[in-house]
């Protein structure tokens, strides 16, 4: 289970997170939606400490810490318990698909190359990329890259996987293959927090959906509650705009 309480983060004069509380139960999938600039990415980055929150408390499974006590040691521990899937993949371009998955197992988790290989092959198969294991990222499509990035995250055996708009950088025809993999991972009861603009997908896979606005989580509930009967006016407006946008596209 991960629990964050009162997380605040400012960049210079811009207060981006204004005291965020959020709990993700073990095995749950929580989606985070909200308009651009509302602080969704910053929130994810504050959980694995790519950004250092100014205030608040975070607990990830057995690790609990206050923003004030973040140091190199806490960072290492937080990152050992989390994994992140980025919008722009972030694959290591000097490593093959399989090596991308094995890298941290060897370098960070100090597994033997043989162990890492076994785990790597297992996960590359789970995302259906075993035929591309010796390909460098440059030779993969966006969708294939993202599947490898997901396998890399899974292989770390984290307490939670943080997805930051995993399909936003993909060509439309590649979105589905990635969503399918994420859905499969979600069904296997992996704990995950996923920022997405794919509303149908969020409705489909989430145990809970949180709506974020101006640095705060305004509303959180089951997909039925949040999409079917939003309590907050701003949630309603956001969803209306979104659904409208989709009808326009169609």
């Amino acid at each position: 289970m991960i629990e964050i309480k009162g997380i605040k983060k400012r960049f210079r004069n811009n207060e981006v997170l204004k005291g965020v509380d959020l709990t993700v139960e073990e095995g749950q999938t929580v989606s985070l939606i909200g308009s651009s600039g509302s602080g969704k990415s910053t929130l994810l980055r504050c959980i694995n400490l790519l950004e250092t929150p100014d205030e608040g408390k975070i607990s990830i499974a057995d690790l609990s810490f206050d923003a004030k006590e973040i140091n190199r040691n806490v960072r290492a521990k937080a990152r050992r318990r989390t994994a992140m899937v980025f919008q722009n993949f972030g694959l290591f371009e000097n490593k093959t698909a399989l090596e991308n998955i094995m890298e941290a197992l060897i370098v960070v988790q100090k597994k033997t190359p043989a162990e890492a290989l076994e785990i790597g092959l297992d996960y590359i198969e789970r995302v259906g990329m075993e035929d591309h294991r010796n390909h460098y990222p440059q030779a993969l499509s966006g969708g294939q890259k993202q599947r490898i990035a997901i396998a890399r995250a899974l292989a770390l055996d984290p307490k939670i996987i943080l997805f930051d708009e995993p399909t936003s950088a993909l060509d439309p025809e590649l979105v589905q293959e990635v969503l399918n993999v994420i859905k499969k991972v979600s069904n296997e009861r992996t704990t995950m927090l996923i920022v997405t603009h794919e509303m149908d997908f969020a409705r489909d896979i989430s145990d809970k959906v949180a709506f974020m606005s101006e640095g705060q989580i305004l509303e959180i509930g089951t997909p039925q509650e949040l999409f079917g009967n939003p309590k907050e006016e701003r949630t309603r407006q956001f969803l209306d705009r979104y659904l409208q946008r989709f009808t326009y596209v169609i």
Binding site: A76, F86, G90, L91, F92, R152, L156
Partner: peptide, 21 residues
Amino acid sequence: KIQIEAAYSVGMTTWQAMRRI
């Protein structure tokens, strides 16, 4: 930069990210 962030996110230290990636 995204590769460096990815390296940190999987738990590498600054020096490991430098040397390996």
